[in-house]
Simulated scan of single mutants.
Amino acid sequence: MDVKTEVLGMINDLFLEDVSDMMDEDLFDAGVLDSMGTVELVLEIEAKFNIKVPVSEMGRDDWNTANKIIEGIKELQNA
């Protein structure tokens, strides 16, 4: 399973946004994510990747770009 492809697909499905050309752009500033959207995305990530995202990992600065989300998932998979 390719984490990048899955995450981009989830963001597209949940928020109807293709962020593949803005991997390092702040998704909150771009209007893609908000607090409720973050919760939705984390629930999808936990289900899809069979991981638990600790609340301490969910800070805006920690998961505010597609690349940071992908890296965060990879770190949790390898923990």
Rank of each mutant, 00 (worst) to 15 (best):
W63D: 00
S35V: 04
L41D: 03
D61E: 15
L43P: 07
N78H: 13
N12S: 14
V32K: 01
G37H: 08
D13I: 03
A30W: 07
M1I: 03
E6G: 03
F28I: 11
K68Q: 14
E71Y: 11
L41M: 12
E25Q: 13
N64T: 08
G59E: 11
D26F: 09
T38G: 12
L76M: 12
W63L: 15
D21V: 10
D21T: 13
G37W: 09
I11K: 02
D26I: 06
M22F: 05
M1W: 05
L41G: 07
D26L: 08
G37T: 07
L41Y: 07
I11E: 03
L33T: 03
G31L: 01
K68L: 15
E46L: 05
N50Y: 00
L14S: 06
D2Q: 10
E46G: 04
V39W: 01
D62H: 11
A47N: 14
S35I: 03
D29F: 09
A79E: 12
V3M: 02
G31Y: 06
E6L: 08
A66Q: 03
E57M: 12
K68S: 06
T5P: 00
L16Q: 15
V32S: 05
T5M: 00
W63P: 09
A47S: 14
Q77Y: 03
F49L: 06
I70L: 04
A47G: 07
M58R: 13
K74G: 01
D21Q: 14
V55C: 04
F15V: 01
T38S: 13
I70G: 05
L8V: 02
L76W: 02
I45N: 02
V7W: 09
S20F: 02
M36C: 02
K4H: 09
D62V: 07
P54K: 04
G31N: 10
I69T: 08
M58H: 00
E40S: 14
T5S: 05
N64S: 13
P54Y: 07
D24K: 11
V39T: 13
L14G: 05
F28T: 04
I45K: 00
A30G: 05
P54R: 02
T65V: 06
G72T: 08
S56I: 04
V39K: 05
K74L: 14
D24L: 08
I45G: 05
I11G: 03
L43W: 00
G72D: 08
R60K: 14
M10Q: 11
V42L: 11
M23F: 02
K68P: 07
K52W: 02
K4M: 07
M22C: 10
D34P: 07
K68T: 10
G9T: 02
M36F: 14
A47R: 14
Q77E: 11
K4A: 14
A79R: 14
T65C: 06
I11P: 03
M58P: 01
K68G: 10
N67D: 15
V7Y: 00
I51W: 04
F15G: 01
E17P: 00
T65Y: 10
G59V: 05
V42E: 01
V32F: 00
N50F: 02
E40D: 13
E71V: 12
F49P: 04
I70T: 01
I11Q: 04
N50E: 15
E71Q: 15
S20A: 10
L41I: 03
K48E: 11
L33K: 07
W63F: 15
N67L: 11
L43E: 10
Q77L: 15
